[in-house]
Design a protein around this nucleic acid. Structure first.
Lengths: 258, 258
DNA sequence: AGAAGGACCAGTGGTCCGTA
DNA sequence: AGAAGGACCAGTGGTCCGTA
């Protein structure tokens, strides 16, 4: 029931950013060898590397074809002159069934990405079983790599992990999820605000199920393949503790009293 | 039912080896800087580092007490003069119930280590649940670290992983496991030979269960906390393929024929 | 400001191989 | 030779932060 019709929900074309190349590390001072010897704390330095100034690589403008294989129409302001790298359009809060207009993607499309990842996982699992190899039960790095190789370059780990709990609400309480989307769209809230708001109803669901958020995820066939996000786990934990504290004050009958 | 009585099965005292210290890396040639610059293939080199000659560190003989905290009786030949580091006695093939004599450990003791690991896992799980953290379902590095901190220095990952399939046979077919031990003891075989022989009956069990060795492990409450060893998985896989090939020749009714 | 994602990092699973 | 285990390494889960 993962319909391909939903693919139409994604806006054609992608957001763009200039492709940039890291500057050659040619002698950024005087004695290059000294830097290697002295750079004992490599870990700190590795991060800082990114901070070095970058320049547009004009060579790549020549063999343009090697890079522009996406087929997405480049119908907009490339006036800058630099070569453009593509990013997905940002999400906006849409009602169920609503297609985002302009250079935006809607939430049905977001949730569709989770279904696509599931499909990729199933493929990875089938290949693993065929080969008699270890078979992942969750969406792992291996699955993200597979998705990328299969051409789904718009799927990436940080994005999928970022919205997992939103997808969880969508799975576990479709009506509540839809209502939340409508409310936040009406109020003109941005995606970040909607995303934050998804935590609360999930914590309420957890409360009704003995606070076992792992069991809740695992009990749902489509959700069970996703790792429980750290923040959701932490919220459930601290909320459980608060709930126990207040119920023990009011004389509630949990294991802390009597 | 993890009885403490089994602890008595381990021989008191431990095998010993001199404590040695890695030589200072002081100028192993002439131009130290060149080595760093030229040593592009670090990964190969790191292994080789271990191969450097080592010397006994006589300083440590002075503050002896800091190291000799094990309490195991040092009643044997320390004649060498070097400080002694402890190792577990090697295993020998023993019958069920038999206690190994001399500086050896028996197989009941080996299997008892698996039960101990299970206890440590349960403790780690309880702590994680209490804190609302991710809860391991298998014996992970975290569990081995916990065991070590708890004083069970004789438990380590390479050893436990090495004999997992032997423990699997012990769990899944106690009678076959016991019979194998008696046979190999009688024949005077060493532990390595017995260990190798444990694979075959496991593959036979897998054959009877549709070759799904993961499902077999997971179905057993004590075995499910252990990762399926790579070699056992591979054996099941290749044996399944051979079995299918031969049954399709004989006209067997599996999914490859008709 | 809000947002997408490359790339980093601490700690993992797996086991080699230097040790005795 | 047979065996125990320190320590290594490739690839993981998790997410920061440089990018636009």
């Amino acid at each position: 029931d993962t319909t391909n019709a939903v693919d139409a929900l994604s806006q054609e074309g992608l957001s763009e950013e200039p492709v940039q190349q890291e500057k050659e590390t040619a002698g950024s001072g005087g004695g290059g060898t000294w830097e290697i010897v002295a750079g004992a704390d490599k870990k700190k330095q590795r991060r800082r590397k990114q901070g070095q100034r970058k320049i547009v690589d004009h060579h790549h403008q020549l063999d343009h074809d090697d890079y522009n294989d996406g087929g997405a129409d480049q119908d907009d302001d490339m006036g800058g002159g630099g070569y453009e790298r593509q990013r997905e359009h940002p999400f906006i809060v849409t009602e169920p069934g609503e297609v985002a207009r302009g250079k935006k993607n809607g939430l049905d499309y977001l949730f569709h990405l989770y279904e696509q990842c599931r499909d990729f996982l199933i493929q990875v699992q089938n290949i693993a079983k065929e080969r008699g190899e270890k078979c992942p039960s969750k969406v792992t790095n291996q699955v993200f790599r597979f998705a990328k190789k299969a051409g789904a370059s718009y799927i990436n780990k940080p994005k999928m992990r970022h919205y997992v709990h939103c997808y969880a609400l969508h799975c576990l309480d479709h009506e509540a999820s839809n209502a939340l989307r409508r409310a936040f769209k009406e109020r003109g809230e941005n995606v970040g605000a909607w995303r934050q708001a998804c935590y609360k109803p999930l914590v309420a669901i957890a409360a009704r199920h003995g606070w076992d958020i792992d069991a809740i995820f695992n009990a749902h066939p489509r959700l069970s393949i996703w790792y429980v996000p750290t923040k959701l786990r932490q919220l459930c934990h601290s909320e459980r503790n608060s709930a126990q504290a207040s119920s023990s004050i009011t004389g509630g009958n949990d294991h802390l009293t009597f």
